[in-house]
């Protein structure tokens, strides 16, 4: 598997704290093409620590593309140049010897920088806390097979539910809009019978929260779908628009 090391120049955003002024710093590295992108950053950090310098703060956890913790903007693209993968799944074999790579944090007013490449995405949770659930308590629920759900509908709901909450949609959108994230959750429940009782209240609550947090509006550029590591479709946004419009015009407004 292993090929010859490649030599790279990295321009990485460094910012000591939320209020500090950030700037790009340059690093050079020689790395195996089989290493992952984050392993490459590990190596840079290891070298920095050996020199007693502060390592670059960046987040990752599962490194299997499912937890949604990692997220870097690599040469202007969230999660880098390869479609449908998270940053942790990006491998160095996708870069060429001599390349210069720009690494930036997700940038959005609603995602303030904590340090270097680490941002605060807690806004996503705030949105989910206003309606990203089915209101059932533990216990007292019907048998799992009591509600048959067509395979196609279950599959569509799954496609929406596959969102990993990484925030790449916000990072990619020129308006830093969270519509893809919010619509994925709204869609999952709008498609399933379990989500029907709260369907229209849910969409109003979640959109209201999303707007309040300072995410931009959707102007249908579909950059979100193109950069989404899970390929969440913008048809979810259409579904949410439909539900929201219907809820706004027909149902009771949110208090």
């Amino acid at each position: 598997m292993s090929g010859k090391n490649i030599n790279l120049t990295l321009k990485i955003w460094r910012q000591a704290s939320p209020k500090a002024v950030g700037a790009f710093a340059e690093y050079k590295i020689s790395i195996s093409p089989d290493a992952s992108f984050l392993e490459m950053l590990d190596e840079i950090n290891d070298n920095l620590e050996k020199k007693n310098e502060l390592p670059i703060a960046f987040e990752s956890d599962c490194r299997e593309g499912i937890c949604g913790t990692c997220g870097l903007v690599i040469n202007g693209q969230p999660h880098g140049p390869i479609p449908k993968i998270a940053t942790c799944q990006l491998h160095m074999r996708n870069f060429k010897d001599g390349d210069t790579i720009w690494i930036e944090p997700f940038r959005a007013k609603a995602f303030p920088i904590i340090k270097d490449l680490v941002v605060d995405r807690s806004g996503f949770d705030s949105i989910l806390q206003t309606g990203g659930y089915v209101s059932v308590n533990t216990g007292g629920v019907p048998d799992a097979n009591a509600i048959p759900i067509s395979k196609d509908i279950a599959s569509l709901a799954f496609d929406a539910a596959a969102c990993i909450g990484c925030g790449a949609c916000v990072a990619a959108c020129k308006n830093a809009s969270a519509m893809l994230f919010v619509s994925a959750k709204v869609s999952q429940y709008a498609l399933l019978p379990q989500g029907q009782p709260e369907r229209y209240q849910r969409v109003q609550n979640m959109v209201a929260k999303m707007d309040e947090l300072g995410f931009g509006s959707c102007t249908n550029t579909y950059a979100c779908e193109a950069e989404c590591p899970k390929g969440i479709s913008v048809t979810n946004i259409a579904r949410m628009n439909r539900d929201y419009i219907k809820a706004s015009i027909t149902a009771n407004p949110v208090d």
């Binding site: 659930y133 089915v134 059932v136 533990t138 216990g139 629920v141 019907p142 799992a144 509600i147 048959p148 759900i149 067509s150 395979k151 279950a154 599959s155 709901a157 799954f158 539910a161 999952q188 429940y189 399933l192 379990q194 989500g195």
Partner: peptide
């Protein structure tokens, strides 16, 4: 419980 929550299990 999970089905009631809207977990999209395979069908």
């Amino acid at each position: 419980q999970c089905v009631a929550q809207g977990v999209p299990f395979a069908r």
